[in-house]
Design a protein around this nucleic acid. Structure first.
Ligand SMILES: [Zn+2]
Ligand SMILES: [Zn+2]
Ligand SMILES: [Zn+2]
Ligand SMILES: [Zn+2]
Lengths: 163, 163
DNA sequence: CTACCTATTGTTATATTATATCATACTAGT
DNA sequence: ACTAGTATGATATAATATAACAATAGGTAG
């Protein structure tokens, strides 16, 4: 059975939002992280879209909400979220996305649709294992793994066929 | 047995250089690609180091060799090499490295040492398979896969222990 | 409470990376 | 030589990211 990714299909997005914010609140209680207004709003902005957003796009929204309007405002909040596993940085796109598997320790594997820019985050345990083995052959000690897959999501593949 | 990566160890680097350039010449004959002076020199510059080089660093060297000294000169040559599989772009570092497995169709897997910046390119067939499977679960059609692993190379791990 | 310390935010300025555009020069086929 | 396609050079600017310092908020020891 296919594990359809929310990012690529209609779904109850309130659930996504709730889950992500709820996990963040848990970190506040559990680890004492400080989810200040800018940081919280930044996370909300990211989760409000199932795609990667550039720092300047996030900044525009923050500014519209009355926060600072200079780059460091966005970059600092984004860095904080990434550090605490609430968001990921997608290098390929110079962009950021809310983590959709918060809490579960994971090496993110991103499926990036080249047509619609949607980004799905897939669990990558078997991939991670394969990576560890490849690295071991080079006596390389793995710290972090980032996997970015470019291709076409099912929605866009469907659209293409209709033409 | 460990398949030590040249990038992380002493080795006869002339062989690397020769192999890479030799493969490029083959593409000239086989596919009719145009390996012009700037492009050839760019490839030589990349292969002369077993690490990722930024476009502006490449540009400086090209300029020193009498080629143009404006960004597009480097970016165009690098883009050409990437398109033809002679180099890879390493997003994490905003940098480029000569392909060390030219000819073999492959999804590159980069081992990036955070201490010395060396970059090794490992074959990634098993990883690729795992990625395909993960993507299939989301009905996602894979086009290109980029895997960037951050960690510590054996040389730097050794140095750390000595302290 | 107050003085102190630290983390956070705001602001200014600048660095780094990348591309758009147009002019010029080279190549290959006719 | 003429022409279409390709490649290079050069100018300008866009997009992304960080350094550095000032101002503010929050917690802690006395
Ligand atoms: Zn959702
Ligand atoms: Zn995640
Ligand atoms: Zn070598
Ligand atoms: Zn390669």
């Amino acid at each position: 059975m296919s594990d359809h990714s929310p990012a690529f299909h209609d779904h109850n997005h309130d659930t996504c939002t709730h889950d992500v914010l709820h996990h963040a609140e848990e970190l506040v209680r559990r680890d004492g992280i400080r989810l200040t207004p800018v940081r919280r709003r930044t996370l909300e902005i990211l989760v409000s879209e199932h795609r990667a957003m550039g720092a300047y796009e996030v900044l525009d929204r923050l500014a519209a909400d009355g926060f600072g309007n200079q780059p460091p405002v966005a970059y600092r909040a984004l860095e904080f979220l990434v550090e605490h596993g609430l968001a990921h940085r997608i290098n390929r796109l110079n962009a950021f996305a809310a983590c959709m598997h918060p809490g579960e320790a994971h090496s993110p594997l991103f499926l990036i649709c080249q047509a619609c820019e949607a980004v799905a985050e897939a669990p990558s345990d078997p991939v991670r294992t394969a990576v560890e083995q490849a690295a071991a052959q080079h006596d390389f000690a793995v710290e972090r793994v980032n996997i970015e897959v470019l291709g076409t999501c099912p929605a866009c593949a469907g659209d293409a066929k209709e033409c």
